[in-house]
Amino acid sequence: MLNNQIGFKLRVRYQKISRLRYLSHLEVLRAIERSIRRAELPFALTQGFSPHMKIAYSAALPLGAESLDEYFDVNLTDFVDTKEALKRLQDNSPENLYPLDAKYIDPKSDSLTKALTISEYEISLSSPQLSPEHIQLALDEILNRNYIEFDKKGKIKKLELQTRLYKKPQLTTIDTGKYQLNLITRALDSGSLRPDILIDALAREIEIAAPDVELCTRAIKFKDLGLDLRFDRFRVFESVLIKRTAQYIEEVTGEIKRGI
């Protein structure tokens, strides 16, 4: 059977932007598999009762996050020229979930989630009522404490920070009330630091440190109307846009290189 052969492994880099940032991880997986089927690439199937496409993805993004650097590895039974494969994929993909690059990799190489442990994020925050100091102080407080606590389905989880931060997060003021947080995280087997978890923690910290700072307009409106704001971050930030700008493989030497 074809399926037993090692075949070829094509690594594809893609972006998830604009409206399609609202897709859940599962929705992205489904959409990509359908693009591959439409592109009629010779994908391999798993064996067994319900055969499915042999494909693997890089780690899930937080809901609502954009990314310029996502990956999937798909096993092919036949060789298709890289350029041709990429073109066929592009022709069959929506522009907001779009393949940017493709390359064959050693079929025995590490899986994406195992390989790509370093993620770089650019997080845009807006909050007219907060000063840069408010945010910086709260951030320092969290970093000094070196852990964050968060609620995961009713259970309080504690996450140590230092080993999960590849670099110290940098806060920059872009404009009045507009900030950017640059973050590089390291995924560990014992749990990863998701940027949305950090931002929620940051928001809670700001509320404690500066109790007299007003809620943002949307939060006030929602509170008046008795609606649920769902995430802590929206109490102090008018908008939060998380963008993953790159993912890296970390070598034993400590050096990092891109997925393709």
């Binding site: 609202y22 897709l23 859940s24 929705e27 809901l63 609502g64 649920d228 704001l229 769902r230 995430f231 929206f234």
Partner: peptide, 8 residues
């Protein structure tokens, strides 16, 4: 969209 279930 970020405040509701299943924004898609």
């Amino acid at each position: 969209l970020e405040l509701v279930e299943r924004p898609s």
